[in-house]
Simulated scan of single mutants.
Amino acid sequence: MSRELQVTIDCADPGTLAEFWSAALGYRVQSPPPGFDSWDAALDALGIPPDRRNDASGIVDPDGHGPRVFFQRVPESKVGKNRLHLDVRAAPGLTGEERMAALEAECAGLLRAGATRIARYEPAPPLEGGHIVMADPEGNEFCLD
Rank of each mutant, 00 (worst) to 15 (best):
S2E: 03
S2W: 00
R3G: 08
E4I: 00
E4Q: 07
E4A: 04
T8I: 15
I9L: 15
I9A: 06
D10E: 15
C11W: 09
C11V: 10
A12R: 11
A12F: 00
A12L: 04
D13V: 00
D13G: 00
P14Y: 01
G15A: 15
T16C: 11
L17R: 03
A18R: 07
A18H: 09
E19L: 14
W21D: 01
A23M: 03
A23D: 08
A23F: 03
L25R: 07
G26W: 01
G26P: 00
Y27A: 06
V29F: 06
Q30I: 07
Q30F: 05
P32T: 04
P33V: 02
F36C: 05
F36A: 06
A42N: 07
D44H: 10
D44L: 12
A45S: 08
I48N: 03
I48V: 14
P49H: 14
D51L: 11
R52D: 14
R52L: 13
R53E: 11
N54C: 03
N54W: 07
D55L: 13
A56K: 02
S57E: 10
S57G: 11
I59C: 00
I59Y: 00
D63Q: 14
D63L: 12
D63M: 12
D63S: 14
G64W: 05
G64A: 04
G66L: 06
R68A: 06
F71G: 03
F71C: 01
R73G: 09
V74C: 09
V74G: 01
S77N: 10
V79P: 02
G80R: 01
K81Y: 07
R83A: 13
L84H: 10
H85D: 08
H85E: 08
H85Y: 07
L86A: 11
L86W: 09
V88H: 06
R89M: 15
P92W: 12
L94S: 03
T95W: 06
G96L: 05
R99W: 06
R99G: 00
M100G: 09
A102E: 08
A102T: 09
A102I: 06
L103E: 07
A105M: 10
G109A: 02
G109N: 07
L110E: 08
L111H: 04
R112Y: 01
R117H: 11
I118Q: 15
I118H: 13
A119D: 12
A119Y: 06
Y121I: 14
Y121T: 14
E122P: 01
E122V: 00
P123V: 10
A124R: 15
P126H: 11
P126F: 11
P126R: 12
P126T: 13
P126M: 13
L127I: 12
E128M: 14
G130S: 09
H131G: 05
I132C: 06
M134T: 13
D136S: 04
D136N: 04
D136P: 02
G139Q: 09
N140C: 05
F142Y: 13
C143N: 04
C143Q: 08
D145Y: 05
